[in-house]
Design a protein around this nucleic acid. Structure first.
Length: 259
DNA sequence: ATGGTAGACCTTCTA
């Protein structure tokens, strides 16, 4: 069972790129972020043609997340619990009904820039809601994965030029502490646990030749519950996807679990 | 200190 996460930066602008990668990598489950469209404009048929079931939580212009799965998707939840007034589409969860079911939450954590604004406060509040939700899921004692664009650089080693990110919401002590608080619930980060370079970058800005200069950061992560971590056998960052035609600024990260 | 690029969409916002 291969579970991928990928911020595609508009699923419609990126459709041919995304389809080409899916044909190549053939993951069983994909968490997509920044689809940047409402549900009705999501190109579901194109993914169904590749054998995927689709669950979407879309939004006009910004954000938007989706789940693709070669197995049925059950018990779908749209939106992160904890704030009924939150209208941003950044979380979708479902149970993947394979031979050994696994719950998958796909998330697009708020960027939070610039710091000192309501956007940064929203980021931290969202992270606390995510921590609480993960704590609730742990009580169910089941295999689950929380995968997505966390918009957090956990450690200096996760950036080519960490000092350049000191004033950025992605590298603030508060952001990093909230990320660790999530981890310290007892979750295992897939990358680095099973062979992959633990600090391999997952994002390179479109600007200033960041990709050509390898000015990357590691901000896309998969957190595993204890029962999922027991089944984890591999985690691969698909760096090559950044060199594709019309690339996203993020690349897919794929974790493999025993069936 | 600034600008560089990309996407949605209508003019500026987000990243």
């Amino acid at each position: 069972m291969q579970i991928a996460t990928w911020n595609v930066n508009s699923v419609n602008a990126r459709l041919e790129t995304v389809l080409a990668w899916l044909r190549l990598a053939e993951p069983d489950v994909v968490c997509l972020q920044e689809i940047k469209c409402i549900d009705e404009k999501f190109p579901a048929e194109a993914f169904e043609c590749l054998g995927y079931n689709v669950a979407v939580h879309g939004q006009k212009t910004y954000n938007g997340v989706a789940l693709l799965s070669k197995f049925p998707i059950e018990d779908v939840r749209r939106g992160l619990p904890g704030d009924e007034s939150d209208e941003q589409a950044r979380y979708i969860e479902g149970v993947i009904a394979s031979s050994r079911p696994i719950r998958v939450g796909g998330l697009y954590l708020p960027n939070g820039n610039p710091i000192g604004t309501d956007k940064f406060a929203y980021k931290l509040a969202w992270m606390e809601r995510l921590r609480r939700h993960a704590a609730d899921l742990l009580k169910l004692d089941e295999a689950f994965v929380l995968a997505g664009d966390y918009n957090v650089i956990p450690e200096p080693e996760d950036a080519d030029n960490p000092t350049g990110w000191l004033g950025d919401a992605l590298f603030q002590p508060e952001s990093r502490a909230a990320w660790r608080a999530l981890k310290y619930l007892g979750l295992t980060e897939a990358q680095g646990e099973v062979g992959e370079n633990p600090h391999a970058y997952t994002f390179w800005d479109y600007q200033a030749g960041a990709w050509q200069r390898d000015h990357g950061i590691r901000i896309d992560h998969l957190f595993c519950s204890p029962l999922a971590a027991e089944r984890l056998t591999a985690c691969v960052v698909h760096r090559d996807a950044r060199a594709m035609e019309k690339p996203s600024d993020h690349v897919p990260v794929v974790a493999t679990f025993t069936d």
